[in-house]
Design a protein around this nucleic acid. Structure first.
Lengths: 106, 106
DNA sequence: ATTAACCTTGACAATTTGGCCAAATAAGCA
DNA sequence: TGCTTATTTGGCCAAATTGTCAAGGTTAAT
């Protein structure tokens, strides 16, 4: 793998890594239904505010969400909704794996 | 986030995490053009065999690739080709981010 | 001018990940 | 059997990730 190829896949991995975390997937899923402030998201996730804030920063740095401050609140919105397409593929991987495991049991 | 939701997103994250690594993305990309043995993949990646083998194990455990031993070699094949669809979305995230950055410079 | 609400950042400990080497395992062949 | 090739596994270490608490910054309201 040459330097250039390496760099290309590294850039791709950076974006995928950004959404590859249970909490961040949850955030993306929630934001797919509209913008939310950090306080709402914190409530939903049920973790420390600082933890949620950091997860949102990671998503923002990857270019997946955008933030906008209005008054004392910061609203986050999904910027690249194509990531939602990942979900159906992931589901099908899970389904197929389960099916295959069931098959092995018989 | 209740226990059940947590579990669902955890399962999804496990699969996404499996491909979120430069080397593993490269492997998936290569396998999209047909099955390859570990020795071929090791050659292409240019890392230690054991390292490549471990990456392949991760992809296998996630249900993304399947392995088949033939003689002394082990061939890996892409089992869920829908993961290839991720690439175009990731590319568009990258493009858009770059475009926005260029805009900021002016 | 204080106070309160909201969010981000820094420091820190705990855990996980990634990579290499060496050793173990498996299959084919002389 | 003994040797070679192909692959996996275990051990180890460095680096990255995660989560929490404490501290700091910003905006709005009293």
């Amino acid at each position: 793998m040459d330097r250039k190829t390496q760099a290309r896949f590294q850039a791709r991995a950076k974006i995928l890594k950004a959404i590859s975390h249970p909490t961040r997937l949850f955030l993306v899923d929630e934001l797919s239904r509209g913008e939310r402030c950090v306080c709402e998201l914190t409530e939903l996730v049920g973790a420390d505010v600082s933890t949620v804030s950091k997860h949102l920063t990671i998503l923002k740095n990857a270019g997946i969400v955008a933030d906008e401050k209005r008054g004392t609140k910061v609203f986050y919105a999904l910027r690249m909704s194509c990531v939602l397409n990942f979900f159906s593929c992931v589901e099908s991987v899970m389904e197929r794996t389960t099916r295959d495991q069931v098959k092995l049991l018989r």
